[in-house]
């Protein structure tokens, strides 16, 4: 088992990188030195009882970057925190995306881009990176995106007009790594099946512990119940069942 660190970490930098979306840098040496692309941290959320699971989006020396979008009460609190706020943080948690040597496609839907940014940074070669948002307001600041990223917006306000799965279909077939909303992931799995390529998708869930003991994030798969926090968050597409 990999050691998990429960540390208190200061927000060193926070900036708005898209509508409702903040990039936060934390001083977190133990996590920065050990995290793998796809892994997450459980982050204290002031005034809330439970921590929030958030994917690590970037590593720079002893710092990690989290990209947080306001979607519920917890993320609303987190995105409003000021620089120098200290938060308890446990990590790195969960498994990681597999390293694929040949060509691959990274498919990101919305804030699901976070773990794939770290992947693209660690394994920059031989990949197409596609990233979709509802509209251009939600697209991350380009300083946070790799140069060759292909963008789609549902309303066509920037890049390819349509969803990120439609954009993916225009690419040469290759194994897929994906993170995003469930309907998108269900479609990614269909694409992988049509192309006859492997796909690995990262799921999210509400979590209480984040380290495998509470069984709160269990999902049913073709191999029985699996815990998103420790069996995942990255799963091979073929074992997942989506009720969409």
């Amino acid at each position: 088992m990999n050691k998990k660190y429960d540390i208190e970490s200061a927000i060193l930098k926070n900036c708005i990188v898209a509508k409702d979306t903040i990039a936060m840098e934390f001083h977190a040496p133990q996590i920065a030195q050990n995290v793998l692309p796809g892994q997450f941290v459980m982050v204290e959320t002031p005034t809330k009882f439970l921590r929030r699971p958030l994917s690590v989006a970037g590593v720079d020396g002893n710092r990690i970057t989290l990209i947080i979008r306001k979607v519920g009460e917890g993320t609303k609190i987190l995105t409003s925190l000021r620089r120098n706020t200290r938060l308890k943080m446990l990590g790195p948690l969960g498994n990681s995306f597999p390293k694929i040597d040949g060509r691959k496609i990274l498919v990101a839907g919305g804030i699901g881009i976070a773990p794939l940014l770290l992947y693209a940074n660690c394994f920059p070669k031989n990949s197409d990176f596609v990233y979709g948002e509802k509209n251009s307001e939600y697209l991350l600041d380009e300083n946070y995106l790799p140069k060759n990223i292909k963008i789609s917006t549902d309303d066509g306000s920037r890049g390819f007009a349509g969803n990120v799965c439609d954009l993916s279909r225009t690419l040469e077939h290759a194994p897929i790594l994906a993170c995003g909303p469930e309907p998108m992931l269900a479609e990614v799995i269909n694409i992988a099946a049509e192309w006859n390529v492997p796909a690995f998708v990262s799921l999210e869930s509400r979590m209480a512990c984040g380290f495998g003991v509470c069984n709160g994030c269990a999902i049913e798969t073709t191999q029985g119940f699996k815990k998103i926090c420790t069996d995942g968050p990255v799963f091979p597409a073929e074992i997942l069942i989506f009720s969409i």
Partner: peptide, 23 residues
């Protein structure tokens, strides 16, 4: 026991609900 249907947890003011189901 596999446990109950998901969702199995929900955060409440100063606490949480669980319905894990003795996995």
């Amino acid at each position: 026991r596999d446990g109950n249907a998901s969702p199995r947890i929900w955060e409440t003011p100063s606490g949480m609900l669980n319905s894990i189901g003795l996995v």
